[in-house]
Design a protein around this nucleic acid. Structure first.
Length: 993
RNA sequence: GCCGGAGUGGUGGAAUGGUAUACACGAGGGACUUAAAAUCCCUUGCCUUCACGGGCUUACGGGUUCGAGUCCCGUCUCCGGUACCA
């Protein structure tokens, strides 16, 4: 084998691995197991850019390393293949989303294979396959047929609940969810219920239930979105406006698990940022629910939720959400018109306006008064849209001296702001939420501290039946339906308007074919178009489909046993593989997927179907690779054309050439204080304009032209435009490629740098098509090989960090691989590895590498291991080392990073093809690192002055004596004497003077 | 606002409290070549000096320490997340 030719050896080994299923993981093994999971990709039409494989490369390195360390590694890949983009495309083109999805998956598999990833492709799954979504539907039915028992703190079968109803009625059942929605009945009444009535009574207990819910409705996409799919009031996909709307929806009762989801976080080895995001998302707060009677309305009561009961004497008014159920009843005739108008105005405001506009204070007085339960003081009842209907009770007691938002409201509407603590300060300026000091103006808690007051008030309110301590969560039940086609059908049918789950034996409920993917004319979801789509030929099915996160909430379990037709995963497989040991993926899933998947896992655990508490033990977020955009600077030119009779004519029909100025020219010409000495660019421009004018003259001889450049000396005359980074090398523009890019640039003219190149501007931005900064891995693999790309992505910097992509550096790892190759093939000829014994220097280089390579992988510090390999190869090259004893272990060390190269060299060294993947990792032997002598830096007061060599065995005292006996102090001590000598054995000596 | 993370050469970045700037890119110079590519060698934090050398430097200001990029306190900037959550 002559020179290093990645294109040949990479294809060869990829084919070998595929043909021999080299990376197949077995469900029975004596080896310890290790499960490495990549986050489930959605196969988008754009394919992969260089940012995508970052995490896959890292996880593949870990996978291959663990195999060498003797683990049975599960490292699967599959596709989250239901989803919006394919469906949007289907609506536009009429093409079935399954088709485009399949094509996209093929592209993904091709690209992933070309990077040399060691997936067990025999376990590939796709969420849109009926054999997979059968089990997603099955889990849904389990949720549908379960309730959450607060006494046992776990999900239980609904049949247990109905048995209990039959025996004892609804009395004493403590279930997760809102008891306000539930009926109260005796066992006798239950037994007299019709089937219909029973189902209605039971519905509000289910973990999957249908309810009128305020949703994020996105008219642009024709569907509802979950909170984590909405960013700044716009849909995350497509950027369409989103509005609040009350609609019947399927929901999953994730709130039942809020406490366990929160507590479980403490057991996980995850980035703090992700854990913190989940904590905030769950949003547990400890407070109290307090009832305010309403003046002149004997039956009306307003319940508020507060985390600061201690401030109740400062509550001078109440604020209800505009949607609050008592609004109508409480509004006095005098305020009726104002209230109606306010509610109407609130509805008109989109969610986005409401979020954008948190500064303006708005609200309206209802005319009614509540009574503060601790002192019977009347307090005004207001409406304002800063109070959310969905959180707490939809009503707050406003304490203007303690809460800034209440303060602003009170100030705006001229309501009183009484102080409640002797520690509050600056109340003429702003609220002070302090918990310090003693209470004042506060009835029974005057003089008490925060802690004392809270305890006393809760006891007092509980005794009077007007309040109780309560824990609240910010998290809401998850909406579990989309008014879309391309998703799992929800396995529900309706009989006389009542929802039934279909029989498990009838699963899967296959997604029917339809003629068009749009909603029906009557506004039903696309599934309304399905012909004769009825359960058992008579009952209509639910028409919404599951959201994107349904299939991805349990996929990691299916990989353990992907083809099982009898069970979602066999007990054996689940017990062998357990949970994911390393989960690699992006931080964007922090509050969506990662929370839903944990929820489903806990639910399955309650049903006894899985054996642990948390599905993902260790999580690593790979940072995003940002694009490096290049810019050209277009000059604004003013053309004048004059015809034969001397009139200025319109030029719409003429083609004008563009003029682009290089970066330095742009910077000088747009700088407001450019001086005359920099004016050579202006001269260049006016010369160039002359040439351009002459060219126009030649092209359109019927006119006379004048042209000038606008805006020199400020920023208006030049427009920075993104230029495709593929036309740019080291920020130098390829003029010919650029001219050929677009027709209108064919005749473009340029003002160059002084070295006659066109230098582009640079900025770091997200990688995206529209910014022309997307770098395609296929191109780089073609040029440098997959091994080089793998190494380079790791070499860029710490895995978790966000970092800009710059293709320039890849040549460095390219030459490293060639150097590595040359250790084996010095003359670019046949293998020249010798069996000579290794020298101590060579052994030291090798064992340093073995030690550090392992440490680095265990710390997920891949960038430093690449540097380490470079250093090792530089050392061995300098030592002219071509010895098997050194190179053979070194190939194994490198193999997780550059597997193709390693396989090839391994085979050349005489090993069976493909066997490097399961060979043992070289053993580190410390004795090779031991040196006879150590060079110590000598410092005066911490400042290093020179070096001195000592025997490695020398004691601190010996070194101190030797240093003081030398002329070191005389030369650097500035005549002072040593006060103290610090000797750090093996490291350094510091003399204090 | 709140919660995370990060500030080190022209660039990406390295550094168990112990010689800051490893490794790589880029740049400059040289060798080989008819030439190019490839490859190899030298220089490359900043200031100062003909040179030897000297001084300064890890966002900024303090502190702890024999010794701080690293630990502590304060400030600033950037990035990510989140937000009328009562």
């Amino acid at each position: 084998m002559p020179a290093y030719r990645p294109e040949e050896i990479e294809k060869k080994w990829q084919a070998h691995w595929k043909q021999h299923s080299t990376f197949q993981a077995h469900n029975h093994s004596d080896k310890p197991k290790y499960y490495v999971l990549d986050m489930f990709p959605y196969p988008s039409g754009a394919g992969l850019h260089v940012g995508h494989p970052l995490g896959y490369i890292a996880s593949d390195i870990v996978t291959r390393f663990k195999r060498l360390k003797g683990f049975n590694v599960l490292h699967p890949m599959g596709f989250d293949s239901f989803g919006l983009p394919a469906e949007q495309y289907a609506i536009q083109t009429g093409q079935h989303p399954a088709l485009t999805t399949d094509q996209n998956i093929e592209t993904y598999i091709k690209q992933l294979s070309s990077l040399g990833f060691s997936y067990d492709w025999n376990r590939e799954i796709r969420t849109s396959d009926a054999s997979y979504y059968k089990w997603t539907q099955w889990i849904f039915l389990k949720l549908f047929n379960s309730w959450y028992n607060l006494d046992t703190n776990r999900a239980e079968a609904l049949t247990d609940l109905t048995a209990r109803f039959a025996e004892r009625g609804s009395e004493g059942v403590r279930a997760a969810g809102d008891d306000g929605d539930r009926q109260v009945f005796t066992a006798g009444q239950w037994q007299l219920f019709t089937e219909h009535q029973k189902l209605a009574a039971v519905h509000s207990y289910r973990l999957a239930y249908q309810q009128d819910t305020y949703v994020n409705w996105c008219p642009g996409l024709g569907t509802v979105l979950s909170n984590d799919e909405v960013k700044d009031g716009l849909s995350e996909r497509g950027g369409y406006p989103v509005e609040r709307r009350l609609m019947p929806q399927w929901n999953l009762r994730i709130t039942a698990y809020a406490d366990r989801l929160l507590a479980g976080l403490d057991t996980l080895d995850w980035p703090d940022a992700v854990k913190e995001m989940q904590r905030n998302w769950i949003g547990r707060s400890i407070g109290a629910e307090i009832t305010f009677p309403v003046q002149d309305h004997a039956h009306a009561q307003i319940k508020v939720y507060t985390t600061r009961v201690d401030t109740i004497y400062g509550a001078t008014f109440l604020v209800l959400a505009p949607e609050h159920e008592l609004v109508n009843e409480l509004t006095t005739p005098g305020q009726r018109a104002a209230v109606d108008e306010y509610i109407a105005a609130t509805k008109r405001r989109s969610e986005r306006d409401r979020m954008a506009d948190t500064k303006t204070v708005s609200g309206v007085f209802t005319g009614a008064y509540g009574l503060n339960p601790v002192n019977n003081e009347p307090v005004q009842i207001w409406l304002a849209d800063y109070v959310l209907a969905g959180y707490g009770t939809g009503a707050v007691m406003a304490v203007p001296s303690g809460d800034q938002r209440d303060y602003l409201f009170a100030q705006h509407f001229g309501l009183p702001i009484p102080a409640i603590s002797d520690a509050q300060q600056g109340l003429d300026q702003q609220a002070d939420p302090t918990k310090e000091g003693r209470y004042i103006n506060s009835g029974i808690i005057n003089g008490l501290t925060y802690k004392e007051a809270t305890t006393k008030l809760i006891a007092y309110l509980e005794e009077k039946g007007l309040g109780r301590g309560k824990v609240n969560f910010r998290i809401r039940d998850s909406i579990f339906g989309r008014q879309r086609y391309w998703g799992e059908p929800i396995p529900i049918y309706y009989k006389d308007g009542t929802a039934y789950g279909i029989a498990e034996s009838d699963l899967p409920l296959v997604l029917p074919e339809i003629s068009e993917y749009k909603p029906t004319e009557t506004g039903e979801p696309p599934l309304g178009r399905a012909q004769n789509w009825l359960y058992r030929d008579q009952y209509p099915y639910e028409l919404s489909t599951m959201p994107g996160w349904a299939g991805s909430s349990w996929y990691y379990l299916r990989y353990m046993d992907p083809t099982n037709e009898a069970r979602f995963v066999s007990e054996e497989a689940e017990q062998y593989w357990g949970t994911v040991d390393l989960y690699m993926g992006g931080a964007e899933h922090a509050t969506g997927h990662l929370l839903y998947a944990r929820f489903w896992y806990l639910f399955l655990k309650d049903l006894g179907l899985v054996s642990s508490n948390e599905p993902f033990q260790k999580l690593i977020n790979q940072g995003m690779i940002l694009g490096r955009s290049n810019f050209v600077y277009r000059a604004s030119l003013g053309w004048t054309a004059i015809n034969a009779s001397g009139d200025i004519v319109s030029q719409d029909h003429l083609v004008h050439p563009f003029l682009f100025v290089s970066k330095t020219a742009f910077e000088i010409l747009t700088s407001p204080n450019s001086f005359k000495q920099d004016s050579h660019f202006e001269i260049k421009i006016s010369e160039k304009l002359g040439v351009m004018r002459d060219n126009m003259q030649t092209r359109y001889p019927e006119y006379k032209f004048e042209v000038e450049a606008f805006g020199i000396g400020n920023n208006t005359g030049f427009t920075p435009l993104h230029v495709d980074v593929n036309f740019v090398d080291n920020d130098i523009l390829d003029i010919n490629a650029f001219r050929g890019w677009r027709e209108e640039y064919n005749n473009a003219e340029f003002i160059f740098e002084d070295n006659n190149t066109y230098l582009c501007g640079v900025e770091t931005e997200k990688m995206s098509k529209s910014k022309y900064n997307v770098v395609n891995p296929d191109v780089l693999i073609g040029k440098y090989g997959a091994d080089a790309l793998r190494l380079y992505e790791m070499f860029l910097g710490p895995l978790e960090q966000y970092k800009p992509w710059n293709t320039n550096g890849i040549s460095g790892v390219g030459s490293f691989l060639k150097k590595f190759w040359r250790l084996f093939h010095p003359e670019d000829g046949d293998l020249a590895v010798t069996d000579e014994p290794a020298t101590p220097a060579e052994l030291k280089a090798l064992h340093k590498a073995i030690q550090k390579a392992q440490e680095d992988i265990e710390k997920f510090s891949f960038n430093t291991s690449v540097s380490l390999f470079m250093i090792t190869v530089n050392e061995l090259t300098a030592l002219k080392c071509h010895k098997r004893a050194i190179l053979e272990p070194l190939v194994v060390l490198l193999s997780p990073y550059a597997p193709h190269l390693a396989e090839e060299l391994w085979e050349e060294l005489g090993h069976a093809a493909g066997s490097i993947s399961h060979t043992p990792y070289p053993e580190f032997r410390e004795e090779f690192l031991v040196e006879d002598n150590v060079i110590y830096p000598l410092a005066i007061n911490g400042k290093v002055r020179e070096q001195m060599q000592f025997a490695a065995a020398a004691t601190a005292a010996e070194i101190e004596t030797a240093v003081l006996a030398s002329d070191f102090l005389a030369r650097f001590g500035e005549g002072k004497s040593a006060k103290k000598v610090i000797v750090v054995p093996g490291r350094m000596v510091n003399v204090v003077v």
